[in-house]
Design a protein around this nucleic acid. Structure first.
Length: 158
DNA sequence: GCCAACGTTGGC
DNA sequence: GCCAACGTTGGC
């Protein structure tokens, strides 16, 4: 059964428009350096899972579209490159610490689903995203929340 | 730019 | 194994 996720990204670093312009509208999701998020990517995320693409540290703060997981968890090889910003000497090819997935753009919402609109949506009241101090950049989302976001966006859920 | 909430680090 | 110090995230 498909699961649903929310991925945070700072649009100044990588926006949904960057994803749209990427080859095959597809990208690897490297640089996750939090163990809880790592575990989701390594152990739980499956090909075909839905991803809500959220712009953090942005104006507006919003879910701006959706993507699909097209490659399940595999070692984040950027951690092995000494000159890379995601280098981590604790991770080696023999014993990788960090993992990533690949995603492909599904669609860009014509109307972004703002954080403000999520805050006034009863079905989204439990979203981790809306909890104060929540910094987890890979979050599980319930089917109810997935549907509610699509309802606000005015498009049918996949 | 501020700062609360976290996660990590490292001395003990 | 505790916990203070520190660095980061990210909304406001």
């Amino acid at each position: 059964m498909a699961q649903y996720w929310l991925f945070k990204s700072e649009p100044d670093v990588f926006s949904i428009h960057d994803l749209q312009q990427a080859k095959g509208k597809r990208t690897s999701w490297e640089g996750i350096r939090n163990y809880q998020a790592r575990n989701f990517l390594r152990d739980t995320a499956q090909v075909g899972d839905g991803v809500l693409f959220y712009h953090s540290n942005a104006d507006p703060l919003a879910i701006v579209g959706t993507a699909t997981i097209v490659k399940p968890g595999y070692p984040d090889h950027f951690a092995w490159e000494p000159d890379h910003k995601y280098f981590d000497p604790a991770s080696t090819p023999d014993n990788p610490v960090w993992f990533m997935v690949d995603i492909r753009l599904t669609n860009i919402f014509s109307q972004p689903v703002t954080r403000e609109s999520l805050q006034s949506e009863a079905d989204c009241s439990q979203m981790l995203l809306l909890k104060k101090g929540s910094r987890l950049s890979i979050q599980p989302v319930t089917e109810t929340e997935w549907r509610a976001v699509h309802r606000i966006a005015g498009i049918p859920p996949l």
